[in-house]
Design a binder for these strands. Structure first.
Lengths: 378, 378
DNA sequence: TTGTAAGCGTTATCAT
DNA sequence: ATGATAACGCTTACAA
């Protein structure tokens, strides 16, 4: 038989059964710690576990899934992995799932709506037991996700823009965030504030703006319409850099005076900063800039970007927790043969909000009086 | 039967068989376009495809994998997803795999060596047909990956730091990159250049430095040891920001004169910039700074960061291609029953290098004469 | 307390 | 050209 590779056949359950002297059912029951294993003698368990260990037995996931109808996987659909907003959310999800037998199956739609659809289908085919969608920039049709709910799988959306849907979700408290950003600028002494709002259709845009307006109302601050611009309905998160830069140039050329600029998010804040510095205005010397999100770059740049942090790690963890809990509820239902309970509904609200926290860095400062020194600009 | 959910049983192959009037073997052969399908009448094929389509038949991946011993998945192990260096690589991998029946299974080790080990095992258990490791910051033991090779699966590493291993890999041409960075500074007129080198143990560090030294030698430029600092052996990519900032402060305090600084990577470049601006030095006005990698933030900050771009997308694509090709070779081997051929070895070299390209942005400029104007600093 | 046996939905090897 | 039939490795009634 020289030349023929032995191709050592994989070790199966019945190998362990033979080696331990018990039947494969007993072995299966013991190794899975199935309910029935309560009735198996401690000695037997011990022996079985030992031999399994000794032989380094690894169950075949496919056979197991085929038979048990469970995949022990959770689908994670990322609309665009390149968006820095996403990665921490993913880490949050993974961190939670790591402690469980569930494995996240991550797919990246590259910001292409048809990929989203394709991947949802693939997820379903791969029999994920739940789906988490990380929607950084929500311009794909939510209806696609209804398929998942139709299969009565736990379905959850984390991140931007979910407004009216029956799908549970978590996002940062945009309104309070917008409010906090405004207050920060106000407390520094700014009264002439320019705004780069997000795309109008985005729910986030509206919520943040609501917070801004609420603060303005409470403090008798007039929001000058000429200082208020909106990003176009772009599909690509990166394009908002360039759009924001253009809008800021327009703001500058309009001749209107402003000492601070509140941007929709960090990317657009950087676009604004680029326009300002190109026009010879220092940040924060001549103009303070504040963003939203706290993407990793915000801590890197000089000056650091003052921003409103979305708790992305926590959002990811929350999403994973939701799925885990739903799965738990479900298996209880099955066990008790009861009809669908509404225990799941108890999960704090349809769209949960996590606090957004102001992170003060170097891009904001008190407005400078005319003629004041240029030094100490940082 | 009221109250009992019908729980509509999944549609199986034999359902399609019955509906189309053929046996399940024929249906299977046709739907898979197996070799044997060449002998199936065109009419039959047509009919079978139609009914499968009509019933919206979806094969069960688990049954299929169990039987065929193939998973059609490729494992992608990311050492740390939060590293901006990784995401584009991932997108490159995915972009390539998208066009094939292979699905990437992405796992993120959160920069924890024991997670790497655990996930490699899980990958193996999930029967991935190949493994791509995205090693942004290589401080875990490569030996873990030997397990994969031991299972005689295609095994590939993309990114930083692979030096001496039998595992194939792709990385940017660090030496040429270092050389290009040097040349750029030199051509701008810089002669007093400070260096923040990477951790000594990292292969990347050595290659980049080699390029730097080669340029210096060729142009009779003396590299002042006092201006040459090394980052410590950190495990976390983000900590290099702070380390670099500290080293730069030291450089500044040493009183040595330098008009440009060449950093190990973009993160450390930003650390240096922070130190410089905090010390009141403008970039590039008083000091030019150049990085390495071209992480997304490099285009966002103002001034934009001049850097040496690692072609991450291409590196990812290359990795996926390697796996795909290996898989192809393998199935040919199986078909021809031959012993392991060395066709695989023909894949351009053990460690393939992709060109690193200089990206000139705003953080580098000609050195300024003493007393020159401050304006136009960008 | 443990063993027997019947599938899960495919694919592959034979026949015909 | 197409159809039986036997695995693949596991879980789970049910039997003992």
């Amino acid at each position: 038989m020289k030349g023929v590779r032995p191709h050592s056949r994989r070790l199966t359950l019945s190998d362990v059964a033979k080696a331990s002297g018990f039947s494969s059912s007993t072995v299966s029951i013991v190794l899975n710690e199935a309910p029935l294993s309560r009735y198996v003698a401690a000695q037997t368990k011990q022996k079985i576990r030992e031999t399994a260990e000794r032989l380094d037995y690894r169950p075949d996931v496919f056979a197991r899934s085929l038979r048990s109808r469970r995949s022990h996987t959770v689908g994670v659909l990322v609309v665009d992995l390149a968006d820095p907003f996403c990665t921490l959310i993913l880490q949050g999800i993974e961190r939670k799932l790591m402690q469980t037998p569930y494995l996240p199956i991550i797919m990246d739609a590259h910001n292409q709506p048809n990929q989203v659809e394709r991947y949802v289908k693939m997820m379903l085919e791969r029999r994920v037991e739940g789906l988490i969608t990380v929607a950084n920039w929500l311009l794909f049709k939510m209806e696609i996700l209804e398929q998942v709910s139709a299969h009565s799988l736990p379905n959850f959306v984390v991140g931007r823009g979910l407004q009216s849907s029956r799908i549970h979700s978590v996002s940062a408290d945009n309104e309070t965030g917008g409010y906090a950003a405004m207050r920060h600028l106000y407390e520094l002494g700014h009264r002439q504030i320019a705004f780069i709002r997000g795309p109008r259709r985005l729910a986030d845009t509206r919520f943040r703006w609501k917070g801004v307006r609420r603060f303005a109302r409470e403090h008798h601050l007039r929001l000058h319409p000429k200082l208020t611009q909106s990003l176009p309905e772009t599909s690509d998160f990166m394009s908002s850099f360039e759009c924001s830069r253009r809008l800021t140039i327009g703001l500058l050329e309009s001749g209107e005076c402003f000492t601070a600029l509140l941007a929709f998010d960090d990317i657009s804040a950087y676009g604004a900063i680029r326009a300002l510095t190109e026009a010879g205005r220092q940040v924060p010397g001549h103009c303070s800039v504040i963003g939203f999100d706290d993407i990793p770059a915000a801590a890197l740049s000089s000056p650091g970007l003052t921003t409103v942090r979305q708790p992305m790690l926590e959002m990811g963890e929350y999403a994973a927790e939701y799925i885990l809990r739903s799965l738990e509820v479900r298996s209880h239902e099955l066990r008790s043969q009861g009809p669908g309970s509404q225990a799941k509904e108890a999960f704090r609200g349809q769209n949960h909000l996590l606090a957004a926290e102001l992170v003060i860095r170097g891009s904001t400062a008190p407005p400078r009086q005319q003629g004041q020194s240029l030094s100490g600009a940082l």
